[in-house]
Amino acid sequence: MTLPGASQLPIGAVVTEPGSTRRNTTAGWRAYKPVIHDDRCVRCQLCWLYCPEGTIVELRGVFQIGGRKYDVKYEVVYDYCKGCGICANECPTRAIEMVPEVV
């Protein structure tokens, strides 16, 4: 892909299209990926709260995990997760495991 040259870009590095950052996925930044073990998750919401990139999403629904029933579930948006590991560090039940990315 040929990137635009200096004369084709908006001056001063202004981003003129709102929300266009979504096109820049940052999955490639990861060395480790967080994997949520849902059976150990107590739905405390700390991973969702602490994620600096907002890449933990809270899904609504009915989720039957073993003998327990929950109305929320957490998932990682891997397109944007940079693999910082804060979620795993904060998780009080060690439900999030950082797994090496394999190329």
């Binding site: 990137l3 635009p4 040259g5 200096a6 870009l9 001063g12 590095a13 202004v14 003129t16």
Partner: peptide, 15 residues
Amino acid sequence: VTFGPLVSPDWYYEF
């Protein structure tokens, strides 16, 4: 619009 974004090495030199 966004002023003052972070850019990667693919973009900085052009600015």
